[in-house]
Amino acid sequence: MSRIQNTFAALRESGRKALIPFLTAGDPTAEFTVPCMHAMVAAGADIIELGIPFSDPMADGPVIQRASERALAHKMSLRKTLALVEAFRRTDTVTPVVLMGYLNPIESLGYRNFVERAREVGVDGALTVDLPPEESGELLPLMLEAGLDPIFLLAPNSGPERVQEMSDLGRGYLYYVSLKGVTGASNLDLDDVERRIRAIKEISSLPVGVGFGVKNAEMAGTIARFADAVVVGSALVSQIEAFQDSPDQAQAQIVDILRAMREAMDASAARDA
């Protein structure tokens, strides 16, 4: 079983849902990332999505675009992102790490190099935003062979056939993009999300996470009632932006937000139990 599968199995056992925070590698500095990942785990994170900075993040809203720009300003790269995971793994061999980013840095490194190095440093999965299943014929087998879980995005306009396709090809979990828009958008209709998640779960037995636009503990608690995981990105990254000159404070803010989300998610799980 992969680390991601183990994590979801353990959560199911305890009747809880996964909290998945996102941060961009090297934002605002390379030194910030690994301690922040550990702090996230201590605050209740079950899986960490680590963003690979890219010069042209087409699917991201302004908050995560600027995170990429801050990281690229001091030459953060996919290679260095992998080195950060390696550093994280020295003291945490349990928490799954999923890389999230765009295809070009991976193409540039070379698919085979990428999966070999990712496996070596202890990456568990990868979510490549601009690589739909149609174009993944070359990378996917290499990932599977290396034991890396390919995580696919599902959108509000993905039909049942596509859900089936992602479910067949994906491993670890499916990531439901909760709205038509970019990361960090603000017009989330949770009733609609719930209907969609229930429909997806009828097709797929993979755990389903919800992300794009999860802002606070209340929303996380509501989503945890019907989804298997809550992904939170822009709400955390905006704290890094607000406190980029005082990393300790940025980390403290992130920890506070995650603790509150953890509490709300566990409370709603306990209520439903």
Partner: peptide
């Protein structure tokens, strides 16, 4: 059919754009 000119072209977009 899928927009390939040899190894070039194709459809490399986020899932939300696949339907449109």
């Amino acid at each position: 059919e899928r927009g390939h000119f040899g190894p070039y072209g194709g459809i490399f977009v986020a899932e939300t754009l696949m339907e449109p």
